[in-house]
């Protein structure tokens, strides 16, 4: 892998830091007119999702990380691993473990495309689309006539996610959900 000097750091560049692959979020050049130049860098650790703030002397470099973000369709889980397939027609499959899937397990629906981050060819994280359509598998019966405001109730969706929905929603309905906030948007 190539290495990158601080003056090549820019948002989205993938580098290795302390053994973890990271994505550069922000890079600020700081230099007293007469003094040492530094780069104050924010990096997202792609393994943990945590954002690190680190300072480097300008001109220092970091090893690039072999990280790829690819669109993949979710296929199924065998209970231990979650299986995805590239959408480029190659049918190549990748298995993601619990750590990579994390909290996004509740947004995994078959045949939907996810962005899978590969590090050295292993999935380390997945990102769902911003909006996803899921069926309600369980909720209290809908209240007729209540189509405007007034209260909400929990509903369990086909993937196991539980979201707050308006009172008028019924079991079996398909809803549009914002995966970033985990909030109900509308009926699909």
């Amino acid at each position: 892998m190539a290495s990158y000097s601080t003056n090549e750091f820019k948002g989205g560049l993938k580098v290795m830091l302390d053994g973890d692959p990271c994505s550069i979020v922000e890079n600020e050049f700081v230099k007293p007119g007469k003094g040492q130049a530094f780069n104050r860098v924010k990096l997202r650790n792609l393994n943990t999702g945590r954002v690190w703030e680190r300072t480097f002397k300008s001109g220092e470099s970091l090893e690039g990380a072999d990280v790829l973000e690819l669109d993949m369709e979710y296929l199924y889980t065998d209970g231990e691993m979650w299986h995805f397939m590239k959408t480029d027609g190659s049918f190549e499959q990748f298995a993601a473990d619990k750590k990579a899937v994390g909290d996004n397990e509740k947004w995994l629906k078959e045949q939907v495309a996810y962005v899978v981050t590969l590090w050295n060819d292993n999935p380390i994280s997945i990102a769902p689309p911003n909006f996803i359509e899921l069926e309600v598998t369980e909720t209290d019966p809908g209240l007729k006539g209540d189509t405007a405001q007034g209260g909400s109730k929990p509903a369990t969706l086909s993937t196991g996610a539980v979201v707050r929905v308006p009172l008028f929603i019924n079991q079996g309905e398909v809803l549009k959900i914002d995966t970033r906030s985990g909030e109900y948007v509308s009926r699909a």
Partner: peptide
């Protein structure tokens, strides 16, 4: 020594 002072000055004091 000056590297340390520059870092502290630029990050904390400036």
């Amino acid at each position: 020594r000056d590297d340390c002072l520059d870092l502290l000055f630029s990050h904390v004091i400036e």
